[in-house]
């Protein structure tokens, strides 16, 4: 019988490594393109509505998630993700895809237990860590300001 260590060696020799350079490149292109589209949308909101550079990000994000909904629903987001990797997962559209795909998937168990209960199956951890880290960072900063170490 072979031991685990020897097998791990053999296995890693044969299993192809992820093509790192190619993956980084496609992630850059895909992520960059999504942000570029986002910038286009935000310029649209700035030009035709009363949004500034700062405030335009809200409708921009919502619009991008709407686009992600269509792409997810028509089965296209998966293909973009296979090509782009992190390039499609890291932008907010990836967050949208995680929520939307789970919602579509669990529709068969009903709206309350299925959609409601499973919507944040994948994306819930992002919200948890976002809120928790926001709290901790704000708390530390407040303490530091109180002790006069830094200012706002």
């Amino acid at each position: 019988m072979m031991d685990e260590k020897k097998y791990a060696e053999l296995e890693s020799k044969i299993s192809p490594k992820p093509p790192l350079i190619r993956n980084l490149f496609t992630a850059f292109i895909t992520g960059g393109t999504i942000c570029l589209i986002g910038q286009g949308i935000s310029v649209f909101y700035m030009t035709y509505f009363d949004f500034t550079e700062r405030t335009a990000s809200n409708p921009t994000v919502a619009t991008l998630i709407f686009i992600a909904m269509l792409l997810t629903g028509f089965g296209q987001y998966r293909k973009i993700a296979q090509f782009g990797g992190a390039g499609s997962a890291v932008p907010i559209t990836g967050f949208g895809n995680a929520v939307i795909s789970a919602a579509i998937e669990h529709r068969s168990e009903g709206y309350v237990l299925g959609v409601g209960g499973n919507m944040f199956k994948l994306a819930g951890s992002v919200i948890l860590f976002g809120v928790a880290s926001a709290f901790i960072v704000a708390l530390i900063k407040t303490i530091l300001v109180k002790f006069g170490v830094v200012s706002w």
Binding site: P18, T72, Y77, R78, G84, S88, I100
Partner: peptide, 17 residues
């Protein structure tokens, strides 16, 4: 797929393996 991995429409990059 939905049981062992992710929802079918979730975009994740599958490795060559």
């Amino acid at each position: 797929e939905r049981q062992f991995r992710y929802p079918v429409e979730y975009g994740s990059q599958k490795p060559e393996t």
